[in-house]
Nucleic acid binder design. Structure first.
Ligand SMILES: NC(=O)c1ccc[n+]([C@@H]2O[C@H](COP(=O)([O-])OP(=O)(O)OC[C@H]3O[C@@H](n4cnc5c(N)ncnc54)[C@H](O)[C@@H]3O)[C@@H](O)[C@H]2O)c1
Ligand SMILES: NC(=O)c1ccc[n+]([C@@H]2O[C@H](COP(=O)([O-])OP(=O)(O)OC[C@H]3O[C@@H](n4cnc5c(N)ncnc54)[C@H](O)[C@@H]3O)[C@@H](O)[C@H]2O)c1
Lengths: 238, 238
DNA sequence: CTCACTTTGTGCGTACGTTCACAAGCGCCT
DNA sequence: AGGCGCTTGTGAACGTACGCACAAAGTGAG
């Protein structure tokens, strides 16, 4: 009650993390609609396109402001603009990719980033055979130039696609050079200063989560084999 | 006592999703420790390695059973086994990758899957130039053979790395052929029957989330420009 | 055996996220 | 102009998740 929160100001403090994570999904759905020539959309329609519940969608959007029209819906272009602004996509963010192996190559060649507010400005790799080659129009710089590249292009977001063994070292150097957000593809927990934001993409983890659910399905009775085994182990152990 | 569990059995109904998502992280940290020759680990140490709070770690592990020793900690090998079993990683899961462009190639060549309970058994692509070529020891099959490949290798998990435009179609075919878990890299919301589990990996979304936080940092006062603009818009609009 | 020390497993308060359900607001039709 | 139908925005109930703090349970020393 000290600050403000009593009446209705969900806007008082920041937007919930869960909402922020969904805004890009809404943005994509809206872009698709806009491409199809749709000018107005209801929360119900947009929610379906985004794969969420319509109440959740409306609450999420309400954190940004009151941008809909009751009885009508949301103006597609206007909403695209508002969400883009909230996410900081009205400007282009310079990005550096470190590590241009299989994954780094795929990322560098991917057109979906440039079209969504990101500009890959620098590529860095330790492999002498890669340094100097050009990938999707950008020349690969040597590892020694990492700091210089970051500063020169005012890079705020770094992508790590190196082997796990060197990922922490790369993260340290990126942070020291001024990068304050990192997208990490290496299967390792990075430790960085608290003001640096790290997000990880870990495909093995995703597969393992799928395996868990897959295994569950194998036991129609509700009690899966592993549970029985566990109970047995407990019965013996105690 | 056969079916009972009213007293204290957090095991009664399933493991929370948030916990399942962290188990692979613990597993990786434990594997690293095991490789280093560590035989016993405390919740505090393991939590640090996994980047979580130790109480959370203990609660997560408690859902699996009571596998620690008070005053000592957890036996590394035993815990690796228990978590693996819970995740269904004591068996190998056959996987099919559909779409072998930049990303599909990276995935097919990645050794980190095989070492974690997954076996890439089939590769499928529509491009005639790719069909018949070998990637990491597996021959690429034509799109027409998708169903046959899925059935032949008893594939339960499918990976979609095709362009977004065809992803839904591929998903439908995978499901029809018997796949019940899908890992989707295409930037689109897939619609599948409820018993099919879908997880998505979307790098653009991750970058956009980073951009959001990055933008916030630009306003040291706590109130960012977008908030001021929003308030202004509201003041005028109302 | 007892005591001091360590570490697990978990009850409980709190915070966060989701969903329902409906009043408020808007446009259109008469 | 007034009423009707539609859709938003949100209060409130519910459910899930987090993390503190501590009793329970183990180890090892004397
Ligand atoms: N390929 C995948 O599908 C996949 C899937 C999941 C996770 N990953 C992870 O992503 C990372 C990259 O995977 P990959 O398949 O591209 O590996 P890769 O071996 O093909 O590429 C690694 C690249 O990093 C470069 N590199 C090595 N040390 C470096 C350093 N100190 N500084 C800069 N660059 C350095 C290498 O020269 C190489 O080009 C790994 O951590 C891997 O575990 C990859
Ligand atoms: N490359 C990246 O870093 C990256 C990043 C984020 C998202 N993605 C997404 O991942 C997907 C693949 O990306 P990419 O860069 O590998 O694209 P890509 O164009 O290099 O590869 C697409 C592959 O799919 C194949 N294909 C096309 N239609 C098919 C069909 N009907 N059935 C089977 N195969 C078919 C093509 O022959 C090609 O080999 C895309 O949806 C992309 O948006 C890629």
């Amino acid at each position: 009650m000290t600050t403000s929160d009593r009446s209705r100001g969900p806007r008082g403090r920041g937007i919930p993390d869960a909402t922020v994570a969904r805004l890009p999904v809404y943005l994509r759905a809206l872009s698709t609609l806009a491409d199809d020539g749709v000018t107005t959309v209801s929360s119900e329609e947009l929610a379906t396109a985004a794969g969420v519940n319509s109440a959740k969608l409306r609450k999420d959007l309400s954190y940004l402001g009151s941008y809909g029209t009751r009885g009508v819906g949301y103006d597609v272009d206007y909403l695209v603009y508002q969400i883009s602004r909230e996410l900081g996509l009205t400007q282009d963010w310079p990005v550096v990719i470190v590590g241009l192996g299989h994954l780094g190559h795929a990322l560098a060649n991917y057109g979906g980033f440039a079209s969504r507010g990101f500009a890959i400005r620098a590529l860095v790799d330790a492999d002498p055979d890669l340094v100097g080659t050009e990938i999707a129009g950008t020349t690969v710089s040597p590892l020694a130039d990492l700091e210089e590249q970051v500063r020169q292009h005012a890079v705020a977001i770094g992508v790590i696609a190196t082997p796990a063994a060197v990922a922490q070292d790369i993260a340290d150097r990126l942070v020291a050079a001024g990068v304050s957000s990192i997208l990490n593809f290496a299967p390792i927990v990075l430790s960085v200063p608290s003001q640096v934001e790290v997000r990880k993409v870990d495909m093995s983890i995703e597969l393992q989560i799928l395996a868990f659910h897959e295994q569950r399905k194998l036991a129609p009775g509700g009690r899966v084999a592993s549970e029985l085994a566990r109970d047995l182990a407990e019965a013996i152990g105690r």
